[in-house]
Design a protein around this nucleic acid. Structure first.
Length: 419
RNA sequence: GGAGGGCUAGCCUAACAGGUAAGGCAGCGGUCUUGAAAACCGCCGGGUGAGAGCCCAUGGGGGUUCGAGUCCCCCGCCCUCCGCCA
């Protein structure tokens, strides 16, 4: 969330940002309620001060052995009135808070304004692969190999779930291991995190309240299944102050991700492109505010490095305001060309959240140069299903087999082909 | 799930029988010093304010009371045991 004072002092900027991000929040109502809340708070605080003064006087009088019965009787009504004022202030506070939590982060100054078609391809690497045989989409290729079953998961879980078998399951596991090892070698600390988290944790990273419909919730315990490891990893440091000298802190984590995809019915229904449950390796940075812009480039380069080593041609897209997520200030999507489906697949989203998540989750830094909220950043490194799709479709052979990218062969006992 | 013990600031530790959170360590700044240590001084939870100040803060939320770290209720987390369990 944004600083409350900043919100008050930059109404035009905030309104422009809300419009550019196409958010629905009524910021006029926020300002109105906030003014009411602050008036009520002032009133109750000054009455509280009066009560405190009277109580101190009673305490002194008692110590001096004086009769305090009259003074105490006189405070009864005041105490009651204070209680009522506090109740009113708390009510207003809840109303303001509900609106406050729906105000998005501001897009960074360099972000193009507009919808999806305003996204900018800022660079690309490699040439989209042209196969010397017809490109087969991964669902056919996987089915023919007997390694991708769509029927069994549909029977047990419904649509949007996958079942990998044999060497394809092994290939996914190889990717996970290789991703984590690569990040570790670059200085990231590997963490294994909870997959069920509290509502407060989800508010911290910004999934709640806006995206409640996209989350799986375990009602009896009021816990949410994480839609990304970002939630768990960022919340590692919730409600804490980090030493400036410890920054940056960089983590990598493997996790399953659970998404209801509430608004995406009928979209990407074939194959592995859009799942209710999938695996991902995520990288997360906690940075000093002064370094967060460079860190965003570093984080993106870290994710890009994986695609280069896998020799998968990709492009880097700077998202326009309308495509930016609620909490993000700036985001690069990494898209890999996949000849079977004939699409650029988003395999990573590398975002900077400035201090937006840190303020929500109360993650501060303190040190010689001052104190404040840290900046958080994260990116996929990488999402497994679409990486698998890209490998299957880019590395397919004319006889329906799939070559194993060179970097993964050590993870498959030297095996260089699947099928 | 059951029983018992705990939770005070970054860490450690006080607060009689309810009277408005005391100290220590670490950290930061300074004095002194060739430099350091020691010693001494100041700062050292959050909000608001130009400031004096005011408000909040003892795991969280309620209640009793003029007044709650302290008394009552609910919840969370940690520790020890029992039960269950991969």
């Amino acid at each position: 969330m944004l600083d409350r004072k900043f919100l008050r002092e930059h109404r035009d900027l905030v309104a422009a940002a809300v419009a550019a991000k196409r958010e629905a929040v009524d910021i006029g109502a926020y300002y109105e309620k906030d003014a009411e809340r602050r008036a009520a708070l002032q009133e109750s605080e000054s009455l509280q001060a009066e009560v405190n003064r009277a109580n101190r006087a009673i305490s002194e009088a008692k110590k001096a052995g004086l009769d305090t019965a009259a003074a105490i009787a006189g405070m009864r009504a005041t105490g009651q009135r204070l209680k009522e004022l506090n109740a009113r202030a708390a009510e207003l506070d809840a109303e303001v808070e509900a609106l406050y939590l729906r105000i998005p982060n501001l897009p960074d100054a360099g972000v193009p304004i507009g919808g999806e078609n305003a996204n900018q391809v800022v660079r690309s690497w490699g040439e989209p692969r042209r196969l010397d045989h017809p490109a087969v989409p991964h669902w056919d290729l996987g089915a023919e190999l007997g390694m991708l079953d769509v029927e069994a998961p549909a029977r047990m879980s419904g649509s949007g779930f996958s079942l990998l078998k044999g060497d394809l399951a092994r290939l996914e596991r190889a990717l996970i291991g290789w991703f984590l090892d690569t990040h570790r070698a670059a200085g990231y600390v590997e963490v294994a995190v909870p997959y069920l988290v509290s509502p407060a944790a989800m508010v911290g990273t910004g999934q709640l309240p806006k995206l409640a419909e996209d989350m799986y919730r375990c009602q009896v315990d009021d816990l949410y299944l994480i839609p990304t490891a970002e939630v768990s990893v960022t919340n590692i440091h919730r409600e804490s102050t980090l030493a400036e000298s410890d920054l940056p802190i960089r983590y990598c984590a493997f996790s399953p991700c659970f998404r209801r995809e509430a608004g995406a019915a009928g979209k990407d229904t074939r194959g592995l492109l859009r799942m209710h449950q999938f695996h991902k390796v995520e990288i997360v940075h906690f940075e000093h505010p002064d370094r967060s812009r460079e860190a965003h480039e570093e984080l993106t380069a870290q994710a890009e490095g994986l695609l280069r080593k896998l020799e998968l041609p990709y492009r880097v897209v700077l998202l326009a305001t309308g495509d930016l997520s609620f909490a993000a200030s700036r985001c690069y999507d990494l898209e890999v060309w996949s000849p079977g489906v004939g699409q650029w697949l988003e395999v990573s989203s590398c975002s900077s959240f400035t201090d937006f998540q840190a303020r929500r989750a109360q993650i501060r830094w303190k040190g010689a140069s001052g104190k404040g909220f840290v900046h958080t950043l994260n990116g996929s490194g990488l999402a497994l299903p679409r990486t698998l799709v890209a490998i299957l479709e880019n590395y397919q052979t004319a006889d329906g087999k799939v070559l194993v990218p060179a970097v993964l062969r050590p993870y498959l006992g030297g095996q260089d082909v699947i099928g």
